[in-house]
């Protein structure tokens, strides 16, 4: 009786939703500035990893970008210090607002993205650290066993953040350096796996693999 009641209550309350780790959902996964730290007045290149419902991810340039009073229609933008900030006080964050086409529904209004670019000592995005899949180094394409827990792991310094995303199977602990993937019989057996890493200095790096479960 109690189990039946619990099932009844849980079943009826809210519509199911795509989890945040799903690549089978139109959304901007992450955006980056290359480089993410520049001298005031220098230019940086903007792009983003975009997921699409029913299709592979793409790396896209913004439709438009703006930083303060500077607006561009391409992916390269020069970023100046805000007028009310003394540039010699140290690293200065400047928000860059971008728009991207909305996934597979490109007739809809664009998606808005905010990325912080730091003015100060220049620095690059981090390099992609080593990743292991099921204990073995990840190659260019991944094949994993179906209906088993497959551990995904990388190692990052303290303060960095890791996100795993996939369009094949289901992820658990998707915002931890060590996550695991489980592809159920009813899940898609082909798709992509992505690992997104944010360092503590505004840098971003990602890698996307085609994945097949068997």
């Amino acid at each position: 009786m109690k189990t039946a009641l619990l099932l009844l209550l849980v079943a009826g309350c809210i519509d199911p939703v795509d989890p945040a780790w799903s690549l089978n959902h139109d959304h901007v996964v992450v955006a980056r500035a290359t480089p993410p730290r520049i001298h005031a007045g220098d230019a940086t290149t903007l792009d983003a990893l975009v997921a699409h419902a029913g299709g592979p991810t793409t790396v896209e340039s913004p439709l438009s970008a703006s930083a303060g009073r500077t607006q561009v229609t391409g992916s390269i933008i020069a970023v100046n210090a805000p007028k009310d900030v003394a540039y010699d006080t140290g690293d200065t964050p400047v928000d860059v607002l971008m728009t991207f086409a909305r996934g597979t529904n490109r007739a809809l209004s664009p998606v808005q993205v905010k990325k912080t670019v730091w003015l100060g000592e220049p620095a690059d995005n981090p390099a992609m650290p080593d990743v292991t899949i099921g204990g073995a180094p990840a190659g260019d394409a991944l094949t994993v066993p179906a209906d088993q827990d497959v551990y995904l792991s990388t190692s990052v310094p303290a303060g960095w953040r890791v996100n795993w995303l996939t369009s094949a199977g289901q992820l658990f602990q998707d915002d931890e350096p060590t996550s695991y993937l489980h592809v159920l019989p009813a899940d898609a057996h082909d798709g992509e796996l992505a690992c997104v890493i944010r360092d503590a200095e505004g840098g971003v790096v990602w890698k996307v693999w085609p994945i097949h479960a068997e």
Partner: peptide, 15 residues
Amino acid sequence: TGSIYNVEADRFDPI
């Protein structure tokens, strides 16, 4: 009516 994705916070802020 929409959202702004905040890359640093990895968060969508509603509009």
